[in-house]
Design a protein around this nucleic acid. Sequence first.
RNA 1: GCCCGAGUGGCGAAACCGGCAGACGCAACGGACUUAAAAUCCGUUUCCCGGCAACGGGAGUGUGGGUUCAAGUCCCACCUCGGGCACCA
Length: 812
Amino acid sequence: MPEKTYDPNAIELKWAARWEDPALYQASADATRPKYYVLEMLPYPSGRLHMGHVRNYSIGDALARYMWMRGYNVLHPMGWDAFGLPAENAALKNNRQPREWTLSNIEHMKKQMKRLGFSYDWAREVATCEPEYYRWNQWFFLKMLEKDLAYRKDSLVNWCPECATVLANEQVVEGCCWRHEQTPVEQRALEQWFLRTTAYSDALLDEIKQLEAGWPERVLTMQRNWIGRSEGSEVDFEVEGGGTLRVFTTRIDTIFGATCVILAPEHPMAAALVRAEDKARLKSIIDDPGRKDPKQLDKEGFFTGHYAINPFNGRMVPIWIGNFVLMGYGTGTIMAVPAHDERDFEFCTKYGIEVRPVVRPVDDILPLVVGSAFPDEGIVESSGPFSGLPSAEARRQMNAMAAEKGFGKSAITYRLKDWGISRQRYWGTPIPVVHCKACGIVPVPESELPVRLPLDVQITGAGDSPLASHAGFVNTPCPRCQAPARRETDTMDTFIDSSWYFYRYCDNTNSGAPFESSRIAYWFPIDQYIGGVEHAILHLIYSRFWTKVMRDLGLISNAEPARNLFTQGMVLKDGAKMSKSLGNLVDPDEIVARFGADTCRLYTLFAAPPEKDMDWNDSSVEGQSRFLGRVYRFVTRNVDRRGVAGEPGAADRRALRKLHQTLKKITGDFDGRWHFNTSIAALMELVNELYLVEGEMTGSSMGSVLNTLVLMLAPLAPYMAEELWEELGHQGPVFRQAWPVFDEDLAREDEAEVVVQINGKVRARILAAHGTPGEILESMALEDAKVAPQLEGRQVMKVIVVPGKLVNIVIR
RNA sequence: GCCCGAGUGGCGAAACCGGCAGACGCAACGGACUUAAAAUCCGUUUCCCGGCAACGGGAGUGUGGGUUCAAGUCCCACCUCGGGCACCA
C-alpha cells in the first residue's frame, strides 16, 4: 500500500467526534481491578486555555492513558474553579452577568480540552459556581460552626477609602490600592469570618510525614515554614500602675538581659499606654504602608511613659511601641534583649536603651562593652541563680520556675494563622447565616440550603458587596424567631471551593450529601496530583486542612488527600513567563490549527523534563510534527507487508532489538521519573532505525514492530495512535489495549562493545560476547592492535575491568 | 541575610548507580529527488591543530582546588542565574 500523507486535522477531527462518546473515559468503582486516581489541578475559567494548562494536562493525560493500558481502573476527572473576582471585573467592564460570562468561558475551554484529546470523564464534571456544588461549601461551613471551627472576630483588613471596600492582600500594590495608585491603604478593624486552621497546626505539621515519600521535598519544606512551629516561653510582665503584658520569647535564657518591653502598635493595650500627645503618632505607624515590606522599613518607635517589671529579677524596664513588632505573631509583645538579638540591638542602640550582656560564648568571657549582638547559645551569666548554666539548661530551669511561680510557662507558637474567609464580594459562596437583632447570628438551617446567589445584581465595584444592596437577598425572616432579619452579605474565599472539589468528582450528582463515603473509600487517596508549584502553600494547605476536618466529621477515613504530588515547571517564551502584558503568549488554538493536537502535546512533553521550566520555541514544534509524519508514513506504507513471507534476517533482528530497547526505556520513564522528553527521543531513535532497515525487513517482524510502535505512542500522541491502530485493522480504543510486554532476549545486543582506556583515555573499542570473563577481556584489550603499540616500553601498573563495559589500563 | 534548585555545543536538551560527554530535536551546511521550489530522503555539524583523504592529536560540562585507575556526576571554596522564605522575637 502506498504511504499516506499525514493530515493531522483530518485525523484528529474524525476521532474527536468519535471521542464524544461519554462511555469512553467513564470510570466506575470496580473491586476486581486496582484503582488509580489521576488528577490535574482544575483551571479558573478565564476564557482560554494557556500553554501552562496544556502542559499540565498533557502530563496527566499521558499518565492516565498509560495506567489504563497497565490495567488500572482509572479515574481522570476535570472541573472548573468558577468563582472569583475576574467575573465581576468582566461584569463591570463588558456589562456581562458573571454567571453567564463564566459559563460561556467554560464552554469554550471545554471545547479546547476536547480538541486536545484529553481523556476526561466529563460525566463527573464540577463547576464550583453552581448551587449544586456551593451548597456543600455552605453545609461544611455549618458543620464547622457547630464544631467551633468557624467563628467571627474583629480583624484588621486592608481598606481603600476611595473604593470604600476591603481589598485582598493581592490587591494592595506597594501599600496603595491597585485601582487608586495614589491612595494609601488603611488598616481597619472589621468583623470577619475565620476557619480555625490553627486547631490543626500540629496535624498539618506531623502528618507531613505521610507525604515524604510522594511529595516534592521543596513543597513540604515550604509548608513546614508556613506553619512555622516555634517552641519558647510566655512570661508575664506586670505593668506598673496596673495590667499585665505577656511576651513570647524563644530565648528565655536571656531574660536577665531584657532592657525594655516593646509592643506592636496594633496591640490592644497600646492605645491605653501611650500618652495623649502620641496618639496620632501611633496611628501613623499603624497605617504606614512601608510596614508591609520589612526590607525597606527603618525601625522606629517611642517610649510610652510606662514601665513593666521583669518577674525574674524585679527590675523595671520601659515600655515602648515598636513598628517592627508584629501583632500577628506570638503575643504581639516582645522583651528586647539588645545584647543577644540583632533586631533589638538595632532598635535599642538607636534610642539609647541600655545593652546588658548575659550570655557568654562557651570559650570566652562575658564582654563589658558590646559592639554587636551575640545571638548564639552559650553560658548564661549575671542571671542570679541561673548563672553558669548552658543556654538550653537555663531555659528548662527558667520555664520550670516561671510555671511554679505562676508568671509564665513554656509555650509553642505558630506562624500559621486562622483562615480569614470573608470576602465583600458578589461572585462567591454566600455565607449561610442570618443576623437577627434579637437572636444574634443564626445559622441557616441545613434544610434551607443552598442559600442561592441572586443573579439580578448591579455590580458597581465600590462599597459593600453587591449583595448588600439586593433587597430580595438581604431581607429574610430570622430562622429562629421569624422576626425580620438580614442575611450575611459576605461570600467565601474561593480557596474553599478548591479545597475539596476532588472529593465531589467521586459523587458529583449527589443531592443529599457532599458525597457518599463509600465512594471516597474506593477512590481515595488521589494516587497522583499534578499542578503548578505556585499552589504549594495556599491551595495545598487548605486542601489538607479540609481533608482533616472531614475526617474528624467522620465523612472519610484518609488523613491526606493525595499520596503523590507532581509539580510541573512553567512554560516560558524568550526566557520570560508568558503574559498578555509582555505580548509573548502562544495560543494553543493556533498551534493545534497549524500542526494538530498531537504535535502540540508532544512538544510540551519533549521540550524539557516535566518538572523543569520549558522555553517555547516555535520552530522546534515543527520537529514534533515532522516526527509524527515519519511515523504515519512508515506505518501506512508497511501495513500490507505484515503478511509477506520471507526468511527473517539481520534487519528483522535489528528492528526487533531496537523496538524492545525502546519499550524498556519508555516503560521505565512512565514507572519512574516521567522524563517523557527522553521517551519521545527514544521513539524517534526507533523510527530512525526502522527507516534504515525498512527495505530488508520481512513480514516476520513487521507486524510486531507496527503494533508495538503504535501502542507505545498511545499515551503520548493519542490521535495518531488511534488512527494507526485502525489502519492496522484492530478494534479500538488503543488506550484500552494492554501495554506491550518487554522481551529481554530480543532487546539484547549480539555482542557487547567494550571501551579500552589507557590512563582513562579511550584508545580502542573491542567487541566481545556477553558474559566474557574479565581476564579474557583484559588480555583482549592488551593485545588489541591499537592498544599494544602504545604499551611498548611502558610499565602496566594496573588494569581495571568492568565486565561488558570497560577496560582501563594504567601505565607509567 | 537564610533555605532550596540550576549552570553541559549556535539553541532546547541527554548521560538515571563514578565508567565512551553531547543521545534526540531545532537551527545551519552539503547531497539526492525536482524544470524550479516546498515537502521528503540521505549525510555533516563541541572547539582547536595536522591531513587531499579514511584518519590522527589535543582541549572541553560556570571558576579554583581535592578524592579516584576513572568526575558533568562525589567533597571543599567561590561566581552567576532562578525560586522560596525573611524583622516570626
